[in-house]
């Protein structure tokens, strides 16, 4: 599935656009890594982050509710409502935590993520 080779990361074909619900998320497995993909259709934006919430190490962020705080797009962990910026992964209500975000692109109905 590898498309382009950069120095340390690779673009991967993750799933189809239909696999991710509008204004919601789902999880994909890429090279043994769990990545949460969010289709923020209301803003016409796509995001990819870790699926694991760093607070209690639960693989659930893709099942979280997305939304905005001011202009910042965010996702809330279903467990204890830690919310993370979908842009840079910083935690918006607890500075101790952050998650990784990944470049994402849509081409021809296919979702690609650089991991």
């Amino acid at each position: 599935m590898e498309i382009l080779q950069s120095t340390t990361t690779t673009w991967h074909q993750a799933c189809t656009v239909e696999d991710i619900p509008a204004d919601g998320g789902a999880c994909v497995l890429i090279k043994g890594r769990q990545i949460a993909i969010f289709n923020f259709s209301r803003r016409n934006e796509w995001f990819a982050t870790d699926n694991q919430c760093p607070h209690r190490h639960q693989m659930v962020l893709s099942r979280g509710i997305i939304g905005s705080q001011g202009q910042e797009p965010k996702v809330a962990c279903p467990f204890h409502k830690k919310t993370f910026s979908l842009r840079d992964g910083s935690c918006l209500n607890d500075e101790h935590y952050s998650i990784a975000t990944y470049p994402i692109e849509i081409r021809g109905g296919i979702v690609y993520v650089e991991v």
Binding site: P21, A22, D23, G25, V60, R63, I65, F79
Partner: peptide, 21 residues
């Protein structure tokens, strides 16, 4: 309709999420 993604995790999966997911 568009209602699945607005529900809390329990309602979205019609079950109660527990430790470990």
């Amino acid at each position: 309709k568009d209602r699945a993604v607005i529900q809390d995790s329990n309602d979205r999966y019609l079950a109660n999420i527990q430790k470990g997911g």
